[in-house]
Amino acid sequence: NPITQSQFVPLGEVLCCAISDMNTAQIVVTQESLLERLMKHYPGIAIPSEDILYTTLGTLIKERKIYHTGEGYFIVTP
């Protein structure tokens, strides 16, 4: 039996792509809307728990890849 190979993409990278897409579409990015986006637009991805999502978003903020305001999460533009 051949083994199907899937590509590994770090969660942080997927979140940045999803946040960027949602920002472009002017969709408010909350943790809930982000999870919905992942389920709908990234089939096959293991949906992270709320704790993992929260921690990963926190890491992306520390790395200055995203920022959070009262209006949601946004990509940091250079």
Rank of each mutant, 00 (worst) to 15 (best):
E50P: 15
G72M: 02
L15C: 09
L11S: 04
G72I: 02
E71I: 04
I47S: 05
T55W: 06
P43A: 05
A25F: 07
N1T: 03
T59L: 12
F8A: 10
I75G: 07
N1H: 08
T77D: 10
G72A: 07
G12M: 15
L38A: 01
T30C: 03
A46H: 07
N23F: 00
Y54H: 11
V76F: 15
I27P: 00
S49K: 07
P78G: 13
Q7W: 06
I19T: 01
H68W: 15
N1R: 04
V28C: 09
M39S: 12
C16P: 02
V76M: 14
G12P: 14
T59H: 11
R37Y: 12
E36Y: 04
D51W: 05
G72R: 05
Y42E: 12
L35K: 14
M22S: 01
K65R: 12
T59K: 13
F74Q: 14
I75A: 11
L34P: 00
V28F: 05
Q26S: 10
P43F: 05
P10F: 09
Y42H: 12
K40D: 14
K40P: 01
A25C: 06
T30H: 01
P78A: 04
S6I: 05
Y67R: 13
L35G: 07
K40W: 07
A46W: 04
P48H: 07
V14T: 07
A18L: 15
T59S: 10
H41N: 10
I27K: 07
E50Q: 12
E63P: 00
P43Q: 11
D21P: 01
I66V: 11
A18S: 05
A25Q: 12
P10V: 09
T77S: 12
L57T: 00
I66A: 02
Q7A: 14
P78H: 03
I75R: 12
P48F: 05
G12E: 14
A18Q: 03
A46M: 09
D51G: 10
L34K: 01
C16M: 15
L11E: 02
G70S: 09
S6T: 15
L35S: 08
A46C: 15
Y42V: 08
E36L: 09
Y54S: 15
L15V: 13
E32H: 04
E36M: 08
Q5K: 14
Y73E: 04
L38G: 01
T30N: 12
T56G: 03
F8P: 15
A46N: 08
A18G: 02
M22Q: 02
L53S: 01
P78E: 15
G44H: 07
G58F: 10
T56C: 15
L34S: 00
Y54G: 14
S6V: 12
I19Q: 01
G12I: 12
T69Q: 05
C16R: 07
I47N: 03
H41W: 08
S49I: 04
I52K: 08
A46E: 09
T30A: 00
E36A: 14
L57P: 00
T30I: 01
I45D: 09
P10D: 11
F74E: 13
S33V: 07
G70T: 15
A25W: 03
A18R: 02
T69A: 06
G58N: 13
T4M: 13
S33W: 00
Q5W: 08
K40C: 08
S6M: 15
R64Y: 02
N1S: 15
R37M: 09
G44R: 12
F8Y: 07
P43M: 04
A18C: 15
P43W: 04
L11G: 02
E63M: 05
L35H: 08
S6G: 09
Q7F: 14
T59Q: 12
T30M: 01
A25M: 09
G70E: 13
E71K: 11
S33H: 02
T30E: 02
E32M: 06
Q5G: 08
D21T: 06
G72S: 09
L60M: 03
T69D: 14
G72T: 03
R37P: 00
P10C: 12
K65H: 09
L11K: 01
I45F: 09
H41E: 08
E63G: 04
N23H: 02
L53A: 01
P78N: 14
Q31K: 11
I52A: 11
I75V: 12
V76R: 14
T59A: 15
R64K: 14
H68P: 03
I61V: 14
L11F: 08
T56P: 03
I75N: 03
V9H: 15
A18H: 04
D21C: 03
I75E: 04
E13D: 11
R64M: 05
Y54E: 14
Q5L: 11
I45T: 14
V9A: 14
K65T: 03
N23V: 01
T59C: 10
E32P: 05
L34N: 00
H41T: 09
H68Y: 08
T59Y: 08
R64H: 13
P43K: 08
M22V: 00
A25H: 11
E13W: 04
P43R: 07
M39F: 05
T55Q: 14
I19S: 01
Q26N: 09
S49D: 14
P78L: 03
I19K: 01
T69P: 03
I75M: 10
A25R: 13
C17M: 15
D21E: 09
V14I: 15
Q31E: 08
L35F: 12
K62G: 07
T30Q: 01
M22W: 00
I3D: 15
S49M: 04
I45W: 06
Y73L: 04
V9C: 10
V9P: 15
M22N: 00
G72L: 00
M39P: 06
I66T: 01
G72Y: 01
N1Y: 05
A18N: 04
M39I: 10
G44K: 12
I3R: 08
Y67Q: 11
G70W: 04
V29A: 11
K65N: 02
G58I: 07
E50M: 15
V76D: 09
P10A: 12
C17F: 06
I19R: 00
I27Q: 08
I47R: 08
I75H: 07
Y42W: 05
V28P: 14
T56M: 11
P10W: 09
I66Q: 04
L34E: 01
P43L: 03
I66E: 01
L15F: 06
P48I: 04
Q5T: 15
P10T: 14
L53Q: 02
Q5Y: 08
D21K: 05
T4K: 14
Y67H: 07
A25S: 13
K65P: 01
S49V: 03
C17R: 15
F8C: 13
V14Q: 15
C17S: 15
E71V: 05
T24M: 15
G44M: 07
T77E: 14
T77Q: 07
G58S: 11
K65G: 02
D51F: 04
P43V: 08
L60G: 00
P2A: 02
D51A: 10
E50I: 14
T77I: 05
C17H: 10
I52G: 08
V14C: 05
I52N: 04
H68M: 12
T69N: 07
G70K: 10
A18M: 15
T55Y: 06
T4Y: 13
N23Q: 03
Y42D: 09
P10G: 10
I61Y: 01
P43D: 06
P2Q: 14
P2D: 04
P2S: 15
I52W: 06
V14A: 11
I27R: 04
H41K: 10
E63Y: 02
M39L: 09
S6F: 08
H41M: 09
G70H: 13
V28L: 13
P48D: 05
F8H: 11
G70R: 10
L38E: 01
N23E: 02
H41S: 12
I19W: 00
A25V: 03
V29I: 01
E32G: 07
I27V: 09
L57R: 00
L53E: 01
I61Q: 08
E71C: 03
N23G: 02
L38I: 13
A25Y: 04
G58H: 09
V76W: 13
E13R: 08
T24F: 05
L57H: 00
L35I: 15
K40Q: 09
